[in-house]
């Protein structure tokens, strides 16, 4: 048994003549947080539904925890927790009654279920509204209730479809904390999203979807190197001297480009922060800012799709 919990080979979904998902390969390891990223309509949700056996697979193979979702959907669904995009609960029932219904569908023994429900609600900080009707819940609370359902299920894999869309920053932060909590509990988490900066902060690896294909896959740093090129980008703000000509003489600096008001973007093949600072100061300039630019997923994403469009 390998450490892969999800193994996808050549997975394809056809809607008529359109290829919603086009022969993707994907592996997800135990205990990692994996991000499925891409614009709306790129095939993320379709891929998720095929992983759960909720929609037919046109071609390719899927292995989830050793089971085939096409032939053994019940076994897969028993072990995988799913939080759909804008999850819904029965409004006329309380949170406890909603989870109790899920527990019955999972055939969890009654006494066991009550304990698991209250523990799960505790873990998502909803214990105080356990007996309130879901109709009174905010969107963020519903998402947390969805996480509680996954916790109660003791799922080995959690699949979250756009979990942070429509949430305010605070609720997003809390939700991401809970997702990290799932990871700590040993759950492999698959997140689909188009909100990049938030996802970046929790994902170990990401796959970038484009027109049903995986365009890029790897950790954020790997992707940045692939798309933005290797190197250490710096952001510099200084005045009093001609930055461009001053810095071009520094060993290792490859490009210096003006960026915004009095700012410059410097790309070097190594960490040149100390040398750059020294050169500016010694040339009589006043250095007001020197920042190491972490590659951002947003940048990778934007650049990638710009290049795609140019290529097309």
């Amino acid at each position: 048994m390998t450490d892969n919990v999800i193994d996808v080979r050549g997975l394809t979904k056809l809607y008529g003549a359109t290829r919603a998902v086009d022969a993707i390969d994907l592996t997800i390891r135990r205990g990692e947080i994996f991000g499925l990223l891409g614009p709306n309509g790129a095939g993320k949700t379709t891929t998720i539904l095929m992983l759960l056996g909720l929609t037919e697979v046109s071609a390719g193979t899927v292995d989830v925890l050793g089971f085939d979702p096409v032939r053994q959907p019940l076994e897969v669904k028993r072990r995988v927790g799913y939080l759909p995009d804008a999850v819904g609960f029965y409004d006329h029932l309380t949170a406890r009654e909603n989870l109790r219904y899920t527990a019955r569908l999972l055939a969890i023994p009654r006494r066991d279920a009550e304990k698991r429900i209250s523990d799960a609600m505790e873990s998502v900080q909803l214990a105080d509204v356990l007996d309130k009707r879901v109709s009174t819940f905010s969107r963020g609370m519903r998402q947390r209730l969805g996480i509680a359902e996954i916790v109660m299920k003791k799922a080995e894999i959690a699949i979250l479809d756009e979990p942070t869309s429509g949430l305010d920053p605070h609720a997003t932060f809390e939700l991401l904390e809970m997702i990290r909590g799932l990871k700590k509990a040993g759950v492999a988490v698959l997140i689909s999203s188009h909100l990049l900066d938030r996802v970046q902060s929790v994902c170990d690896r990401v796959a970038l979807f484009n027109h049903g294909k995986i365009a890029l896959m790897g950790s954020v740093v790997e992707l940045a190197n692939q798309v933005l090129g290797a190197g250490h980008p710096l952001l510099i703000e200084a005045s009093g001297i001609d930055i461009a000509s001053t810095l071009r003489g520094v060993e290792g600096v490859q490009t210096v480009v003006a960026e915004g008001e009095g700012g410059w973007r410097v790309v070097a093949d190594r960490d040149v922060r100390a040398a750059v600072a020294q050169r500016i100061v010694s040339s009589g300039g006043s250095l007001t800012r020197l920042a190491d630019l972490q590659p951002s997923l947003e940048e990778v994403y934007t650049r990638y799709f710009q290049e795609e469009r140019h290529a097309a």
Partner: peptide, 8 residues
Amino acid sequence: SRVLSQPI
């Protein structure tokens, strides 16, 4: 979709 993602 949430109910159908349970084992039924």
